[in-house]
């Protein structure tokens, strides 16, 4: 069983192997270091001409990647910490994400910007955040979040090789060490796989095999899907509350015409209750959008919604205070029990 880190590294190697238009730009990429979280390890040795270790210029390297993509390359950018995604906002929002639309479909921008997000490592206020919500809803930009339910390397490879538009690829730091789940690990679950608008990024729907009618739909992505899975088991075995868990790889765009994606619509059709779980801050986030769509689409059939998310304060460096600020399994259990 490979870890998420190994899978991502293999995905990058596979993309480099498959297409010599793939290049990598980022800070501290050269072996033996191989990037701050080692996702890029081995690439600079094997493809020295195609790996550009860069100055500390996040906006600049994303713009450079955009220009390379306009001219036919397929660049991957590594942004060392997701917190620095603030630095690339103009290039992402007023540049890369707009080129296809504002140039009337006459330009393609196959760029993948990879970045680790998330806390629980004591890195403090500027190296622990989950900021992807700042990018959700930007037209022309796809935002993906790796998880353990499908091979994150395969997802990354598809984003690099098959997507002709810009992609923000989010990797939660705590996922790196987690194993990519196999059938054996998931043997207690019935797993359905769909995709938003028939795209390449799968959404997984998990139900406990043989469980009675579910009472609640949990929706989570990235590392929070790990906590969601643990909460699902504990709710079933400790509290006899049966849930389904929906885990999208694609955070944006959501399904067309303001609708819920099918996996969520199906599950909510059975449960009528939605609990969204995210590591970003509580207000105005991914969960709020999912809940709004659910309310619109289900009307009176939606009996309850709630959100579990981070406190709205700078993430403290202290381990005790950080744990209080970020959502954990107990928060999910408490929220779920209050809804059923």
């Amino acid at each position: 069983m490979s870890s998420v880190l190994q899978a991502l590294n293999q995905g990058l190697h596979a993309a480099f192997e498959a297409d010599d238009r793939v290049v990598l730009i980022g800070e501290d990429l050269l072996d033996p270091y191989g990037g701050a979280f080692k996702v890029s390890r081995g690439l600079s040795s094997k493809y020295p001409q195609r790996v550009m270790t860069s100055p500390v210029s996040e906006a600049g390297i994303v713009g450079v990647a955009g220009g390379m993509a306009l001219r036919g390359l397929r660049p991957v950018v590594e942004i060392m910490f997701g917190d620095f995604s603030t630095l690339i906002a103009d290039q992402m929002i007023n540049g890369l994400s707009k080129f296809q639309g504002m140039y009337n479909g006459q330009a393609q921008v196959p760029v993948v910007v990879r970045t680790p997000m998330g806390g629980r490592r004591g890195y403090g206020p500027t190296h622990s955040q989950t900021l992807e919500k700042l990018y959700l809803g930007v037209p022309g930009l796809r935002t993906l979040a790796a998880n353990t339910l499908s091979d994150p390397g395969a997802l990354l490879k598809a984003a690099i090789l098959e997507d002709d538009g810009p992609v923000l690829f989010v990797e939660n730091k705590l996922l790196y060490a987690k194993p990519v789940l196999d059938a054996e690990t998931l043997k207690d679950f019935e797993v359905e796989v769909q995709a938003i608008d028939a795209g390449y990024a799968p959404t997984h729907l998990l139900k406990l095999k043989g469980s009675p009618t579910p009472a609640l739909t949990l929706a989570a992505y990235g590392y929070m899907a790990e906590l969601g899975r643990e909460a699902l088991l504990r709710l079933a075995f400790e509290h006899e509350i049966f849930c389904e868990l929906v885990v999208p790889n694609q955070l944006a765009p959501l399904a067309s015409q303001g609708r819920l994606e099918e996996a969520l619509a199906d599950s909510l059709g059975r449960t009528g209750r939605l609990l969204t779980i995210e590591e970003g801050t509580f207000s105005l986030g991914w969960g709020a959008e999912i809940a709004a769509r659910a309310a619109h689409q289900l009307g009176g059939q939606l009996r309850a919604t709630n959100r579990v998310a981070a406190a709205e304060e700078p993430i403290p460096a202290s381990i005790a205070l950080e744990a209080k600020a970020l959502p954990d399994v107990d928060d999910i259990l408490a929220a779920a029990r209050a809804m059923v």
Binding site: G60, I61, G63, V64, A65, G66, G67, M68, L70, R71
Partner: peptide, 11 residues
């Protein structure tokens, strides 16, 4: 400026 630089590097 970075986009043009990237275009030049691609060429």
């Amino acid at each position: 400026a970075p986009v043009a630089t990237g275009a030049a590097l691609a060429e």
